[in-house]
Nucleic acid binder design. Structure first.
Lengths: 210, 210
DNA sequence: GCAAAAGTGTTGAGTGTACACCCATGC
DNA sequence: GCATGGGTGTACACTCAACACTTTTGC
């Protein structure tokens, strides 16, 4: 039924944000080539399956979760990118909220782990390049669409949002300017609620509008 | 030698600008499916060929020309987009200067023709969608990169440039504002030369910088 | 009361947009 | 001299970037 197209695959770069740092989800490969190496999750595309469906399938098999933001970011087609034969891979990037992040780590389908995206060790195939492309894609998208919604909790203090911007852009941002911007643009909305349990002054929580 | 990957193809949307209108190059298909229908030029990708090379090959076979601006714009993967079997197609968009435009029309490799991009008749497969995506892509790129360079002659009056902007964006633009913008940004440079042979006041010619 | 993080305003530069008339040439 | 397209300037609104101190809480 589900014949593979063995020249076309998808790979997923699954990003999350925790403890002020961007993380990526890797799996320990359970087959050759690259057995036991940490790598991006991926799969061949089936003959009767649209490509983005294949990407969702990979995500679901891995996490059991459906409502994750997913976007196509590029094509990798180096002739020798995969050792055994020619495989063209379509790269997808998924963004997951912290609420789901823990859940995924606990899944027992495969051995999975969240890795800090900075100073990541070498991965097999062209997976480091793929991650680099995901980050570049994210940098571009960040000002175009309210995409950070998918990396932040439903309620968050603005400073957490600022940390996220800074992690992605790899620069520091003026807090007054950022606050003014996201509020005046109507991107976020202040709630009647504050953080508690912190060691200092509590912060107002915000949520994304729309 | 050159085995086809028969699930992966490229299609090329080749755009030009002439007589104040955007045009697209179509070929009359010389094989089934769609024999004798006008359509985008395309080809399977070979096993030992990168995808963008396949796109250039299509262009070269058709026109004999090498230095054409070419960019990947999207992937088409509807299950039934091609009648006989599953083919995933990568869409490329090429931009050609008027100097080359005539030349291509005269090539005798295949029956080719330039068509006005507005009110284009229905094309086979998903080719109308592809063209639509090319136009959307062009609209986005137009302010990001000095891409119009590839659609205008080497020397051109600013009003011609304005016509091109307007054709692409499908809106009218204030000429003072546009002139100010492209000059102050250093996008174009005034030459010591004017149009001649026109029926009215000659216009200064400009060229793209870089 | 003090350490630590949260929160807040103003100014200047630059950019985008709206808008209407004179200019140079061919005929 | 007139029709045709070529060319020009100003004023306002908005957006962005730079910059440092006060406030609130937990301990």
């Amino acid at each position: 039924m589900h014949n593979k197209i063995n020249n076309i695959s998808v790979d997923c770069s699954i990003l999350g944000f925790e403890d002020g740092a961007l993380k990526i989800l890797l799996i320990k490969r359970d087959k050759e080539p690259g057995l036991n190496l940490w790598s991006l999750p991926g799969s061949y595309v089936y003959m009767d399956e649209k490509i983005h469906i294949a990407a969702r399938r990979v995500l679901n098999e891995l996490t059991g979760i459906h409502d994750v933001y997913l976007s196509q970011v590029g094509i990798f087609d180096e002739l020798n990118r995969y050792p055994s034969h020619r495989v063209v891979s379509i790269l997808y990037c998924a963004l997951v909220k912290p609420e789901i992040l823990e859940l995924i780590a606990g899944s027992h389908a495969k051995e999975v782990g969240w890795f800090n995206i900075t100073n990541l060790h070498p991965l097999p195939f062209d997976h480091n390049k793929m991650i680099q492309m995901s980050l570049n894609w994210l940098k571009e998208e960040i000002w175009q669409k309210p995409i950070l919604k998918n990396l932040l909790p439903n309620k968050f203090p603005l400073n957490q949002m600022q940390d996220l911007y800074q992690s992605i852009l790899q620069t520091s941002i003026d807090n007054r300017n950022l606050r003014k911007k996201v509020i005046s643009q109507g991107l976020v909305e202040k709630l009647d609620e504050k953080t508690k349990g912190g060691q200092q002054r509590p912060a107002y929580l915000y949520k994304f509008r729309t």
